[in-house]
């Protein structure tokens, strides 16, 4: 089956299913406790420290955990999921896995994660951007403060990374927390999007967040300050800031849009990826196995063509 990923503001069914699905995954307890997560990280040599209460976690929490261990798995350049070429293929794999888990709990093998076309909102005046329908009880709930309304009012955060210590803290379950438009004034806009799409190389030496050109670093958002994907995290703020950012389901809407922009770039430039197998830093090469708690063996080369899993309703007009 191939899912069709739609704009969340267009597809009401996709929206309702997404909101219902993430809540179901958040309420599906696994029998796994926080001490098991600490042991898993230790057995894999991942230097992530845990503290707090030894509570049982949900399937959704395991995705939060997966993102944190990938980020803690430092490489010569960046980590197993960020700050280098693997950023886009790793998050593509991550979203496919979540999509499959959502398909399971929804009983719908055709379900596709919706995307948030944030550059459209970025065209609005800054004071309007956090007051759109997206931040209402029909969609994602409150833009500021604890999310108590709408379906996501039922989500509970159990694990988060404390920015000041980068320890993983297991605390009494609480609602998702946002501070939209308080740490960044405006979302990325169409000009930012066009600039990222105009980059002719996928990535290039030194392959890091410090590279001054290339589609990956432009889209990840390290070119010229805090931009694109990074800016969306900072704009939403609250739980979207630390490496436990998948705690807020808007994480997946953001990354689905990031993936759609990458797919648009590939439609124009071909399914090209660098570094090749014999160049660049380990962990980012086209044939390097990506960190997957499901135990899969996917490399960037395996996900350049996503048609086996999903397509987009529309790509960007460039």
């Amino acid at each position: 089956m191939t899912a069709i990923r739609q704009n969340i503001l267009v597809g009401d069914t996709a929206r309702d299913q997404f909101l219902q699905g993430v809540v179901l995954l958040d309420q599906e307890m696994t029998g796994i406790r926080v001490v098991d997560l600490a042991n898993f990280a230790q057995n894999n040599g991942i230097p992530l420290q845990f503290e707090g209460i030894n509570q049982e976690v949900s399937t959704y929490d395991l995705f939060v955990f997966w993102h944190m261990i990938a980020a803690a798995f430092s490489l010569q350049v960046g980590n197993a999921a960020h700050g280098g070429p693997v950023f886009l293929p790793w998050h593509r794999m991550y979203l496919i896995r979540l999509e499959q888990e959502l398909q399971r709990v929804l009983g719908d093998p055709d379900f596709g994660i919706p995307y948030w076309d944030w550059a459209s909102d970025g065209e609005m005046a800054p004071e309007q951007q956090w007051r759109t329908e997206l931040w209402s009880d029909l969609y994602l709930g409150e833009a500021r403060g604890l999310v108590r309304s709408g379906p996501l009012g039922n989500m509970r955060v159990r694990l988060y990374q404390v920015p000041q210590t980068v320890r993983v803290t297991s605390d009494q379950p609480r609602p998702v927390w946002r501070q939209a438009a308080l740490n960044a004034q405006s979302l990325p806009d169409r000009i930012d999007e066009t600039s990222a799409l105009a980059e002719q190389d996928y990535d290039l030496p030194p392959w890091s967040r410090f590279v001054t050109r290339g589609h990956r670093n432009a889209l990840e958002g390290f070119l010229g300050g805090t931009t694109m994907h990074n800016l969306v995290h900072v704009w939403v703020s609250g739980d979207m800031l630390p490496m436990s950012s998948p705690n807020d389901p808007v994480f997946f809407l953001n990354h689905c849009n990031v993936d759609r922009i990458w797919e648009t770039w590939m439609a124009d430039n071909g399914q090209v990826y660098r570094p090749a197998a014999n160049e660049g830093p380990s962990g980012h090469r086209i044939s390097d196995r990506m960190l997957d708690v499901f135990g899969g063996d996917l490399a960037p080369a395996d996900v350049l063509d996503p048609q086996e899993w999903y397509t987009y309703d529309t790509l960007l007009n460039v």
Binding site: Q49, L75, A80, G295
Partner: peptide, 24 residues
């Protein structure tokens, strides 16, 4: 697979990170 891998502490990486700062 997800549940059993994490519960058993299965090793899913080929080698440990080499350049990591110690988180926490």
């Amino acid at each position: 697979d997800l549940i059993s891998n994490i519960k058993s502490g299965k090793r899913v990486v080929e080698e440990a990170p080499k350049h990591g700062h110690q988180h926490g």
